[in-house]
Design a protein around this nucleic acid. Sequence first.
DNA 1: GTGAAAGCGCTAACAG
DNA 2: CTGTTAGCGCTTTCAC
Lengths: 351, 351
Amino acid sequence: MKSPRQGITSTDVARRAGVSQSAVSRTFTVGASVAPETRRKVLEAARDLGYRPNAIARSLITNRSRMIGVVMAYLENQFYPGVLETLASRLQERGYQVLLFTGFKDRNSDPVYEQVMQYQVDGLFLASTTLSSGLSGECAAAGIPIVLFNRTTESAQTSSVTTNNREGGRKIADFLVAGGHERYAFVAGVADSSTNRDRETGFCEGLEKHGINEIIRVAGQYSMPAAADAARRLFSRSERPDAIFVANDHMAIAVMDVARYEFGLNIPEDVSIVGYDDVGPARWPGYQITSYSQPLDAMVDASVTILMDQIDQNKVSSIHTVIDAELIVRESARKPDHGLQSRNGQLVWTG
Amino acid sequence: MKSPRQGITSTDVARRAGVSQSAVSRTFTVGASVAPETRRKVLEAARDLGYRPNAIARSLITNRSRMIGVVMAYLENQFYPGVLETLASRLQERGYQVLLFTGFKDRNSDPVYEQVMQYQVDGLFLASTTLSSGLSGECAAAGIPIVLFNRTTESAQTSSVTTNNREGGRKIADFLVAGGHERYAFVAGVADSSTNRDRETGFCEGLEKHGINEIIRVAGQYSMPAAADAARRLFSRSERPDAIFVANDHMAIAVMDVARYEFGLNIPEDVSIVGYDDVGPARWPGYQITSYSQPLDAMVDASVTILMDQIDQNKVSSIHTVIDAELIVRESARKPDHGLQSRNGQLVWTG
DNA sequence: GTGAAAGCGCTAACAG
DNA sequence: CTGTTAGCGCTTTCAC
């Protein structure tokens, strides 16, 4: 008698259907040629036995696991669960699975990658995390494409998908200036992330273009508590800023809460706040954040396309896709009297 | 020349180290006996070559994939990303990986399970979703343990981890009654989920015990828009409820927003709101939801323990773990003048 | 402690 | 179209 862990194999099915084991394999391989009658017999036997092809065994021989390693350090920022959900969905449609690595926020991520690699993933999707150049080289050598999501590097061995963060920063500067503000501040994310750097650069450029050369910069580390602290410092200044660009919505929420509940400020009357990402809570009535939207679906689609193309061609290259995005205007920042346009029921800044 | 997709195998390492392939295998198998000198040679050769054992091939022979299939229909409710993160972390500590299935909210989930099974997962963790009895039987037969997270069934073939939802409902009733309210309402989640049913039953029981027999029940479907609609109906009544238990925090947020921004109500002066889960935003200054906490870590640990035990013993059984939880008292509901106790810097209702 | 050999369940030539 | 055969990379007896 078979042990309970032992499944039904294609050989079992073959025996029962009175055909060869290869015939069974062919029946479950798309595009393989099997006579209708054989196929019928196999399917019947398979159904009777409750047979399911063993994807692990298939992987071993095809040298394709049909798994994509997805690495996300943390899921606290609401943007990422959304990414994960639509990514998983898109991949599943194409017959790929998600091998997820997350929850290692503070720990060293090297062992994580060690694991990913052992599972022979066909591609790597990295969000809210970075990768040693050693490993990306290894992946390139092994023919495993890598997509950095919402991050970039100069590396020739990885691809990336981002929005035009620099232009985003610039547009936000334009928007805030058009709204007639006086003292500008920036709440930064993690300093060495490309995304933060680009948003900041764009914002500064934009302000400078309008002759504004003084920007108060505080560090928010992409975390709510750090952003709250940053906000406290900002609002305690004698010259309180009246226009703040916060590098993402996750932090903007913390900043708004501090402004209102600790300093009694009114938004946007006393201070305008602009965020980035357009996450769920940005639309909640209590926040209504004016935010540069990151089009989730388009970004995920682009990532999946890059991965699939490179997997199919069996060769990795470095593609950098930049997705167009818009500044969605809501109530958290003073609105200019021009340059606003309604689009799909949303107000957007057209400059 | 090897194709780029071809990795370095144990045979390559063996050749370079001048030992047999089995020696290499042993070096990478914990508890196998290898002479220190052999081990050293192997490790050196492996490092030189950049060798990594192939987990897929190992799975095939050991009949253990060291992957746990995690199924979560959606990640919108902030509770679940948190679960996912700590679950992944705990599993990784034990050398298990997460094969994630999500993002099929509206679609039929059968093909999802079809996929999971093909990947020979060693166990199944199901949250915010249910399972056909056929499939759970199949898993039981195949020796694959299943844990339902935050749900239960009578099925003898699955385990479950929940908080004591019924008692939670009762305590919330006690708390609201002690706060001195008059008209009670319940915003339900998905009607046929065990979690919702138990919370509701407990709430009704609790109120009846205090002689309150009229409860307005509206359906919120565990979704924000549905909960918002439910709230609109509730607050449009001539006799507006002044105490509402919302089956989870995710919906409670929507209810609070409708109360404040559409009906101009003050919370808790005009209406008290109690939620369930104690998710992140429940602690945000703008919400401060009085909520029955679901202790994430304890729940996840219990789930992992169940899975690991059954995998190790190679036999599935039906364990139902119920975790103790507390009603965390914040500002969204009128506070009684007794029965409150401070614990770890939080106020809890002790009845 | 070590190597040789036999598979795990499957796919992919290869003849027929 | 079908069966036979040879592995995929690894673990695991089994002698030595």
